[in-house]
Simulated assay, not measured.
Amino acid sequence: MLSEANATKDKFFSIIAHDLRTPFSALIGATGFLIESFDKLELRIIKDFLTDINMSSKEVFALVGNLLEWSGAQTGTLAYDPEQTDISEIIRKNILLAEQHARQKEVTITDTLKELLFADADPNMMDTVVRNLLSNAIKFTPRGGAVSVTAHESGDMIEVFVSDTGIGISEENIGKLFRIDVKLSTRGTDDEGGSGLGLILCKEFIEKNKGHIRVESRQGKGTTFHFTVPKYTEGKT
């Protein structure tokens, strides 16, 4: 228990010291250069810098969001309220939110979903899980690649698959993905940052909702994250 608490503390300070600092450094550098050289720059170059600023800002925003949710989960202040939750709707909403990042990388996103797919799960936690898995899939997929999302009923569970044609993960690193005590941070194919916290959060939230998450990957071929959550049953207590 003590070692887990120490690992949690170390992870928190590692994120503050390194993963938050990197995008902020990019923001400070880009904005400083624009201020000093604005009158001498072509519009094309200014647009390139603004694109970098936008990407770094989104990295910070996503990381802070994960950090706050993870902190709430560790301290017990994050509410767990399972209810009838349409997984298809959550997936479609997050695909729309991810489209801009995907277009910037020329990555296509497709889905194979039923119109209604109800789980007995906390909708906010499911939103966080889907958002992080989609973001990761796009991050590690090169230009011209593809991301696909499939979901269906399987017995008394809902199964969701998020697949990509990205760079893949080594067997050694697969074993480190969901561990709080291991530092695993890999840059995306467009040099996007990451702390590894998103996947740790996914595992915590899926297990909190009585489900499971696993990953299959081949280096150079792509990765599939697969998770399950209980299907909603009318009158179930």
Rank of each mutant, 00 (worst) to 15 (best):
L2S: 09
T8S: 14
T8Q: 12
K9F: 15
A17N: 15
D19Y: 10
T22K: 13
L27Y: 05
A30V: 10
F33I: 08
L34G: 06
E36K: 12
F38T: 06
F38D: 03
D39L: 11
E42I: 09
I45A: 02
D48V: 10
D48H: 05
L50I: 12
L50Q: 12
T51K: 09
I53K: 06
A62W: 00
L68F: 13
S71Q: 12
P82E: 11
E83M: 14
T85F: 01
E89P: 00
K93I: 06
N94D: 08
L96F: 05
A98K: 05
A102D: 05
R103M: 08
Q104A: 12
K105F: 02
K105P: 01
V107S: 04
T108E: 11
I109T: 01
T110H: 07
K114S: 10
E115V: 09
L117R: 04
A119H: 00
A121H: 01
A121C: 08
D122R: 01
V130G: 00
N132D: 05
N136K: 05
A137N: 07
I138R: 03
I138F: 05
K139D: 04
A146Y: 00
A146E: 12
A146I: 05
T150F: 11
I158V: 13
I158Q: 00
F161Q: 12
D164K: 11
I169P: 02
I169S: 01
I169R: 01
S170P: 06
E172I: 12
N173K: 03
N173L: 04
G175Q: 08
L177C: 03
I180A: 03
L184E: 02
D190P: 00
E192R: 10
G193A: 10
G194D: 00
S195M: 06
S195A: 11
L197D: 06
I200H: 00
L201C: 01
E207T: 14
E207L: 02
H212L: 13
I213K: 04
S217H: 08
G220F: 03
K221S: 15
K221G: 07
T233S: 03
G235R: 02
T237N: 08
